[in-house]
Design a protein around this nucleic acid. Structure first.
Lengths: 128, 128
DNA sequence: TTTGACTTTTACGTCAAGGTCAACGATAGT
DNA sequence: ACTATCGTTGACCTTGACGTAAAAGTCAAA
């Protein structure tokens, strides 16, 4: 079987444009197969796209995403490279932890905003 | 007392450029005082800048940040507006929850990468 | 066979968020 | 008086991440 997805199938599933997927291919993030000129996406491509979009949502640039994909595709064998990678990973983690905290603080604030809205609505509702 | 901060003082504290702060003023996010032409930032401005940067870190656009500031400065009094605001708030929360999940998944993955690195380093270390 | 839906490449356009550069004013130290 | 440091405005430049339009190929249904 090994099903293939068409490009529009994926754009619909993920709510992105064909331009975006072609752009990701140009940028070397994905490498769908071809039948003639048309792209054929396999489940593995689809999963990779999901991860790319996740990276995008948390604010990674294309370059960062490409770097991450690279590491998965061929992890460094040399010691210096490994240590470099680990320190880069630690940086990223610190960045993500900060972001998570920012999000939690903001979520808490939004709770307050909502509550203030409800209070205000109640006041208005009583008045009318 | 009511201390004033100079522009460079703040750029150093927050690791941003003067251009960025002037840009934020142009965009109507902040309104520092003036003595002649030079900007004087008060503690309240400083705190606002912190919140702007937090918004930036979690991927809010300038327009979104401006909108949020607006709501704080003058919350809507009319009922329709309040309901609109609440639904917008709910949207944002959903977005942030998704982002938080993305971050947590990615943090977990980075844990794996780190572990793989350590394992590999141990293998190499033993060999030498 | 014509319509419609899908696909392709190439290429220029756009938008946000600043960067960079020029030209200048105020103030303080030597 | 000269230099450094810090401030200003204004204008154009850059970068990332696509959008959009042109021109054309493929394939199935009516």
């Amino acid at each position: 079987m090994n099903k293939y997805y068409s490009i529009t199938e994926l754009t619909r599933e993920f709510g992105i444009s064909t331009r975006t997927l072609r752009f990701y291919e140009d940028e070397g993030l994905i490498h769908p197969e071809r039948r003639g000129r048309t792209r054929l996406f396999r489940p593995a491509d689809r999963r990779l796209i999901q991860e790319i979009l996740r990276g995008r949502r948390i604010g990674f640039t294309i370059a960062e995403i490409r770097e991450i994909i690279q590491v998965y595709k061929d992890p460094p064998g040399e010691m210096g490279q490994l240590q470099l990678l680990m320190s880069r990973v630690e940086e990223k983690r610190e960045e993500l932890r900060q972001k998570r905290k920012d999000i939690e603080d903001t979520l808490a604030e939004l709770d307050n905003v909502e509550e203030a809205c409800l209070t205000r609505l109640a006041e208005i509702g009583v008045g009318t």
